[in-house]
């Protein structure tokens, strides 16, 4: 399996919530590579890409939070104009919808984090086009 797992956590939409989560993860010695917050009215969902998703989930659960591991794709794209477009174009041509998309750059590597309805199929399509779909282990430290 090449999929990476995001840790999704349910939270109230109020000040201090992210800090609360990051503190728990820091105490569990978990490194956070990426974070996204989606909120609506009184509540929201935080998603983390971390060094050890299983352990992060356990740490958050232990503190009483509702969590879930969510499948995602991490794709390495060239950090240059048109790099992202190539990925988007590939998915579009195969009629694959992007539920959530975001990205970050680390050590001169550009990583796209994608959530799609059928991760296995999207991975297949991208790999056939020569994109590098990272495993959990291959994520930059």
């Amino acid at each position: 399996m090449n999929d990476v797992k995001l840790v999704a956590a349910f939270a109230e939409n109020k000040p201090g919530q992210v800090a609360h989560f990051t503190k728990i993860l820091a105490s569990a010695n978990i490194n956070i590579r990426w974070l996204a917050v989606a909120s609506t009215g009184p509540f929201g969902v935080m998603k983390f890409l971390v060094s050890d998703p299983e352990m992060a989930c356990q740490a958050l659960k232990h503190e009483g939070f509702v969590t879930k591991l969510v499948d995602a794709l991490a794709i390495e794209v060239p950090d240059k104009p048109g790099g992202l477009h190539a990925v988007a174009d590939c998915l579009a041509s195969h009629n694959i919808n992007l539920d959530n998309a975001s990205g970050f750059i680390t050590n001169n590597r550009a990583i796209m984090v994608l959530e799609v309805p059928d991760a296995a199929r999207a991975r297949d399509v991208l790999q056939k086009q020569g994109f590098r779909v990272l495993t959990q282990m291959e994520l930059p430290v």
Binding site: L6, A8, F10, A38, S39, T40, F43, G44, V45, K47, K61, V66, T67, K68, L69, V70, D99
Partner: peptide, 15 residues
């Protein structure tokens, strides 16, 4: 309160 089993990790599902 939301139940552990009721969470699929997406804000859309909660809405």
């Amino acid at each position: 309160e939301l139940a552990e089993a009721g969470f699929e990790g997406q804000v859309e599902q909660l809405m």
